[in-house]
């Protein structure tokens, strides 16, 4: 073939980011605004067990997961659990429409510039990263099934017991 068109065939699908949020690695820090505009910094929760949940309001499994996360937070907040929902959607309309339908006790932050998204590289939503008191990612869950809730609870209880 005169023109080497073969190379045009391949669609290189290297992802936009490499997997940063891996089990056993230190949870990448971030500073993001919550719904009131206050800056939430992950480092400040060192010493607590933190569940980071990447989500978007249009994602049905994310919406299904929220009541379960809220129940978990209410049950263990006094024992040292923190839950931070990291919204990746830049539509404030969708966010507020969703929040009007649910009551959430845990912290919601907004990642409009993809800072946390780049650090944790979730490809599927929701993605939950459970961080131990030492700031190390101990568990990662991709997507949501009802069965995950018991898994989350078992893992959180185990991590809360650790010094």
């Amino acid at each position: 073939m005169k023109i080497t068109v073969a190379i045009l065939l391949l669609m290189i699908t290297a992802p936009a980011f490499a997997n940063a949020g891996q089990v056993g690695t230190v949870a990448p820090d971030f500073s993001l605004p919550d719904l009131t505009g206050k800056t939430i910094n992950l480092q400040k929760f060192r010493g607590k067990v933190v569940l980071l949940d990447f989500w978007m309001p249009w994602c049905e499994p994310c919406r299904e997961e929220f009541p379960a996360l809220d129940a978990l937070y209410k049950k263990y907040r006094n024992d040292g659990l923190e839950i931070i929902g990291i919204n990746l959607d830049d539509s404030e309309t969708r966010l507020h429409e969703f929040l009007q339908k649910v009551t959430i006790s845990f912290t919601i932050v907004i990642d409009k510039k993809d800072r946390a998204r780049k650090s944790y590289s979730p490809e599927i939503l929701p993605s939950a990263f459970i961080v131990g008191k030492d700031g190390v990612i101990r568990y990662v869950h991709i997507g949501y099934h009802k069965e995950f809730l018991q898994l989350y609870e078992n893992e959180i209880v185990e991590l809360l017991k650790q010094p």
């Binding site: 073939m1 080497t4 073969a6 190379i7 391949l10 669609m11 290189i12 699908t13 290297a14 992802p15 936009a16 980011f17 978007m56 249009w58 994602c59 049905e60 499994p61 994310c62 299904e64 990746l88 510039k113 993809d114 998204r117 780049k118 590289s121 979730p122 490809e123 599927i124 939503l125 929701p126 991709i142 997507g143 949501y144 099934h145």
Partner: peptide
């Protein structure tokens, strides 16, 4: 019901810059 995809592949929607350097070998 398990999850929703994000566009994180070649046509990414993650804001910012990425660089790619590729070598293609074609022996006709």
């Amino acid at each position: 019901s398990c999850g929703c995809t994000l566009s994180s592949m070649q046509f990414s929607d993650v804001q910012g810059l990425t660089l790619d350097l590729r070598w293609d070998y074609i022996n006709q």
